[in-house]
Nucleic acid binder design. Structure first.
Lengths: 227, 227
DNA sequence: GCATATTTTGACTTGTTTTAACCAAAAATA
DNA sequence: TATTTTTGGTTAAAACAAGTCAAAATATGC
């Protein structure tokens, strides 16, 4: 399930624009006035709120304050140029960031990303997986089989990483697509077969390399280094 | 043990805000007037001071000068918009950075991070990187390839330094922008390509120079001197 | 304030990867 | 053994990422 971002702006064009840029990664909910924000937050439980200051029914500053009283959701304020941003930041309100209209969608996306990164403290994952005669290095994006380097494309690498991180566990094609390709992939599950095939060819082209990726007939694939 | 950051501002809301954003990583001490700063520094031994200019009892500029006379602690000044920032930085005062109020907490956190990164490794980290037939000298801001000097622009140099300091590690364009360009660059990631291209051209124009900067398709770039 | 150097951007080209469709082979089922 | 189902291999086209160049924007030094 994707996380939700709530956008509050009375200008529907702006809402659409923001939505377009974020909906690859998030579910984007939209509200057009300040009166129904709190209600919507309860319903959709967003991880971030993008909030215009000039709003019908209830001012964005008030809304911001209200949200802050109830929950600890990161808030990015939208302000027109020249609006008094003094009050927005720091002080009583404590929005996490602000964007001045008009803004470039790219900047908006970058700021969202930055705020989210701060909000979700970095979980440091293991960067290297090791098996006998087999090393997968996330940092260097590199795979070594019996001391020989194997060049992998991004998809191949991700696929291998996911399976190797859970050795022995069987992944269905659907699961692999969900985890490697992402939510918004509507292609054939046969795409997985293709990737697996090329991954196998590359890995097993090294002399003496064992079979790493096993077909579990009727289910999917699994990674296992057999003695 | 966490390191300590000292915040000096008479506005308690701002102090609270800064504290919120930094206390994950640091112990945050707070002082509300300019008179007791020196005393507090002796007590808590902070690694960084965030200092408002407008302070009761004693002016922030004076305090800054005093701190500088005694210790080599990085200082970030807080200024209201329109205050004369010329004097703050460089010469007489020598603050390391400044933030204009009102500021977004995000920007503040990023600047703290940047100042800390710059300040800390100064003592221990190596100022010169050496590879076979290849020397990068941070102090002289100079690069030698096979004995020949290569002139690099600031961005080119920083880019090269970052990657060469972590040979083999792959950097995404986003990561490079974050580390080399800084937090307030929201341009195209294509800018990285441009820099890399010119960097490559300069480095590889030397006869016999190997390829240093490698493209990792779909991910980014890495520095590696291959045998 | 002007001239110069540097950086960024956009359009275009080139090259690689990914996808989707097809068919053959293998495994399970009847 | 014949049939159905599932998997694997191949390939061309589409999608995408990276390289290149030059002009515009920006910063820098005089």
């Amino acid at each position: 399930m994707k996380e939700t971002i709530l956008v509050v702006d009375d200008d529907r064009n702006i809402c659409e624009l923001i939505k377009m840029y974020l909906e690859d990664e998030y579910t984007v909910e939209v509200v057009h006035d300040g009166g129904s924000v709190i209600e919507k937050i309860k319903q959709t439980n967003p991880v971030l709120v993008i909030l215009d200051i000039m709003l019908p029914v209830k001012n964005g500053l008030e809304v911001c304050k209200e949200i802050r009283q109830q929950r600890d959701i990161p808030i990015i304020m939208l302000t027109a140029k020249g609006e008094e941003i003094d009050k927005i930041l720091g002080l009583e309100l404590g929005a996490d960031d602000y964007i001045t209209k008009p803004f470039s969608p790219r900047e908006m996306a970058a700021r969202v990303k930055a705020v989210m990164r701060r909000a979700r403290p970095a979980e440091k994952k293991e960067q290297v997986l090791r098996f006998p005669g087999f090393v997968i290095d996330m940092e260097c994006h590199q795979v070594m089989v019996n001391g020989e380097q194997v060049e992998l494309t991004p998809k191949e690498f991700e696929l291998l990483w996911l399976m190797a991180a859970n050795p022995g566990k069987v992944f269905t094609r659907e699961k692999l697509i969900e985890d490697v390709w992402g939510y918004n992939f509507y292609g054939d599950t046969r795409a997985v077969d293709s990737q697996v095939k090329r991954l196998r060819r590359k890995l097993e082209s090294i002399p003496g390399a064992p079979v790493y990726i096993h077909t579990v007939w009727g289910i999917g694939y699994k990674f296992e280094v057999l003695g």
